[in-house]
């Protein structure tokens, strides 16, 4: 029997996003097919992986992932430079975790200064993330967005509880915006609609359907991402055509599998390789599900994922 490849016809397309200031820009999104289905349409850009850094030293990161940054991580500027120069980071995600009231409760002004220092030291597409305290983030992200004015960064995350303030700050300073909801395609759509109703350009939004790590709910993130992509491409749903974010580092490096010592769990094998594999496998699964932007931590995990992406493109 003759075989005719059953190619899919898609009606929708994911928006292309570009961040950073020329010549240091990166692009992602833009495909008119399911993730990496280059055999039936166009996949103009590869997923972008941003190195995660933070405004305070990574005391709560497990040793495996603290070690590669041990000489630079007590200062965000040297940390960022190290990622850019030594690790060839295509983008950097600065998490302002020190502003969290339960951490150092740093002020919005402190956050703004960190952002300014990084941007004046290096040219790199920057993603600026709050501490995920919706109330505090509102004020922190206003200050951070202003400090990065016109640098074409990504600001996040806007959530149901604070999207008005965060989106307004991103809009006023010409940034892109991450919209995060909780593992539910309808909530995700709803938030995108609310944000665009404020006059925010729908083509400047990145959807974060909420991440989870391998072994800790990744199947939920995986399926929500797949469903968002199907809605975007097959139903041409313009409220679901934003590129998607997988903010994986913080979930992966919390899992027991990235921390438990081999002597405590002999069947799990070497700790360092286990942690790196945990992050890399989580990333690849979400890339297959549709993530175009990833925030990751370990240089070896990122390197391996990049190599496989080379093969996928």
């Amino acid at each position: 029997m003759a075989f005719t490849p059953p190619k899919e016809t898609y009606t929708g397309k994911v928006y292309t996003l570009e961040i950073g200031v020329p010549p240091d820009t990166v692009r992602f999104g833009g495909e008119n097919v399911l993730p990496l289905h280059g055999f039936e349409g166009i996949v103009p850009s590869r997923p972008v992986i941003a190195y995660e850094i933070q405004d305070i030293p990574p005391d709560d990161w497990p040793d495996t992932v603290k070690k590669p940054f041990k000489d630079v991580s007590d200062d965000p500027v040297s940390w960022a430079k190290f990622c850019r120069d030594a690790l060839k980071a295509r983008a950097i995600a600065l998490r302002l975790i020190g502003t969290h009231p339960d951490r150092e409760n740093r002020s919005p002004e402190d956050a703004a200064k960190t952002v300014r220092d990084i941007l004046s030291a290096i040219d790199v597409p920057l993603i600026i993330l709050g501490s995920n305290h919706t109330e505090k983030d509102a004020s922190v992200l206003i200050a951070a967005a202003e400090a990065a004015k016109d640098k074409n960064c990504i600001i996040g995350k806007a959530q149901e509880a604070n999207y008005k303030t965060v989106a307004a700050a991103a809009m006023a300073n010409n940034h892109k915006l991450i919209a995060m909801s909780e593992l539910d395609i309808n909530l995700s759509k709803q938030l995108n609609i609310l944000i665009t109703q404020m006059g925010f350009d729908k083509e400047r939004i990145i959807t974060d359907p909420m991440c989870s790590a391998l072994g800790y709910g990744i199947e939920y993130t995986y399926s929500v991402m797949e469903r968002i992509r199907l809605a975007a491409l097959l139903q041409n749903d313009a409220t679901m055509q934003q590129p998607m974010l997988g903010d994986i580092g913080m979930y992966v490096w919390k899992a027991k599998e990235t921390q438990a010592r081999p002597e405590d769990v002999p069947p799990w094998g070497s700790l360092e390789e286990r942690g790196i594999a945990w992050e890399a496998v989580t990333a690849i699964a979400l890339i297959i599900a549709g993530a175009e932007l990833l925030v990751m931590r370990h240089p070896k995990a990122i390197e391996a994922v990049e190599k496989v992406v080379d093969e996928l493109i």
Binding site: Y222, W268, S270, V281
Partner: peptide
């Protein structure tokens, strides 16, 4: 491990590996 992960997500029924370190198996 990452190639195998693609097979797991995308429809392979058998995946042949060249090595089975414990950390890789667990993931």
């Amino acid at each position: 491990a990452l190639i195998a992960a693609i097979g797991i997500a995308k429809y392979s029924s058998i995946i042949v590996l060249s090595s089975i370190e414990k950390w890789k198996n667990l993931a």
